[in-house]
Write a protein that binds this DNA or RNA. Structure first.
Lengths: 295, 295
DNA sequence: GCAAATTTGTTCGTATGTATT
DNA sequence: CAATACATACGAACAAATTTG
């Protein structure tokens, strides 16, 4: 009939949290106190707290207590509409172009004494790890994107991105080995391609990027991601996965089929609880998008 | 030192699932059998299964058992690059234009005996509920997007979308009351605006959409969403929230500031486990994007 | 259509381990 | 080191959902 006891308790606490009777950061009573407050056993109390934890309302710290979670101000990333650049595809400087543009804008506005909120713009200095470069056989999910046979050779370039000391994203880009064979030797070096890969491939091979396609999906983190992002080890915080396929229509690089042909695919993972994404179309405001709420 | 017992058990099962020793849809042994297999108590077995459940690897059904989850083929939605249309903003026919275009393409390809996968294209017939129309005071998150004072009046139009019998999305659009006062009376009627709102507002008021901005964020479902989408009642399946702000630069509709001014904001929620999103930029393949995997 | 069997869900109790202050 | 607080693990009983006979 009625909800089970643990859920009634959880819902009572949820109400208190949403009414800010319990404010973000507040410590909840400990489990023994709750046992008296609600007249339930410790296990039932723990079930209630687990229910709240799954919903991201509270977090527990061994030896300390249970706390109402603080709202994170999400970082806003623009998925650029400019085919020659854009986040989630670049390396080195290119990857942070968007963030740097936003920071510069805020800096200037503040210098002009304008009233500008830097919300959603990161504090820390953007930084990328040295790329880890490998030659691999293409896994199925890579081969599908690059229209290669499974187990064709590909170059994989993996990087971690940080904002200050905080982990921000994990990114792996795959190129057909064919590009290296035709002379794009830099792709195989474990060194940032500072000028950006798009520029490099055009200079080295005459290969022009004509467009790209970004896919976005949400899934539970894998173990590597959980560790890198410091996510709670239940898998409650999902990651957003961006799959960015770059296309060329330069003759000689396209396959048998007519039309744009993929020459690069990048997989980027970011924690879903601290990131928002923006796309602009047509004429939209100049200023970067601030974090939005939807309820 | 070592992982706790329940996690060792969970990880053993995870390995079996990922090695497809346990295939999607398979029923796992019941809790009593597991108790013998692993020599652990029932509660510990249950903790292990809960760990797998949180990761979306298995699901439990009371009275039936525990099953390896079947992979859902996600539905792919293109966030159009065409400022005059695009998903997540339309009503009635307009909202399904993208899906219908895809279905038509597959139908024609099959008629030509081409080898085309309809993956990611929904089976069911797209359908929208009658809009629920209300005049409200703008909540903060609405006022922020429309650059209104909090508690200005807005028209809210709420719809549920279905594919066949399956719930697909929940959507609410807000318009400043000012638009109705200037003559856009249809906005207040509980009836699909078949021609599309963009077209209607241009005809009725001369207001032209010059662009839009789509924000995307991921969060746990609220209770309404959980019920509507039939999500598991732990909050493990997140929803993707699309916030689409439409801008005009038609003189007379813009605020004091120069530049594009928002006249409409739409909030759309979709379950994250069965949807993918695609954006195209520059020249990308003609054919609609098929669902992608990233690992 | 109902009763029995099966299976997971809830709730209690208790003991011990581990992290933090 | 001691105290505090959450984490893990065991056992047991009854409830609720579902399938089977």
């Amino acid at each position: 009939m009625a909800d089970p006891l643990y859920r009634q308790i959880a819902q009572d606490l949820q109400r208190k949290i949403e009414a800010t009777e319990l404010a973000p950061g507040d410590k909840l009573p400990n489990e023994m106190m709750f046992r008296e407050i609600y007249g339930a056993s410790r296990n039932t109390i723990r079930d209630a707290i687990k229910w709240l934890t799954n919903r991201g309302l509270v977090e527990t710290k061994p030896g300390q207590g249970t706390f109402v979670v603080r709202r994170i101000t999400p970082l806003v990333t623009t998925l650029s509409a400019d085919p020659s650049t854009g986040m989630a595809g670049g390396e080195g400087k290119a990857a942070f172009e968007e963030i740097n543009r936003q920071r510069e804008r805020v800096r200037q506005a503040k210098a002009n004494q304008e009233d500008v909120s830097g919300e959603g713009i990161p504090e820390g200095v953007p930084r990328a790890s040295t790329p880890r470069v490998e030659v691999q056989f293409a896994a199925r999910y890579v081969a599908e994107r690059l229209r290669l046979l499974e187990s064709s050779e590909v170059v994989s370039r993996h990087q971690a991105f940080f904002l200050g000391r905080d982990p921000w994203s994990l990114q792996t880009t795959f190129y057909p080995m064919m590009l290296v064979e035709r002379g794009a030797e830099e792709l195989r070096r474990a060194k940032d391609i500072e000028e950006g890969v798009v520029g490099y491939l055009e200079k080295a091979l005459g290969l022009k990027q004509c467009g790209y396609r970004v896919r976005m999906l949400v899934r539970p983190p894998n173990e590597v991601e959980s560790r890198f992002f410091g996510l709670p080890d239940d898998a409650r915080t999902p990651v957003v996965s961006l799959i960015r396929t770059a296309y060329t229509d330069t003759p000689g690089f396209t396959g048998a089929e007519i039309g744009p042909y993929p020459f690069r695919v990048t997989f980027t993972a970011l924690p879903a609880d601290r990131n928002q994404f923006v796309m602009n179309s047509g004429i939209s405001p100049e200023e970067p998008a601030a974090p939005a709420r939807d309820q």
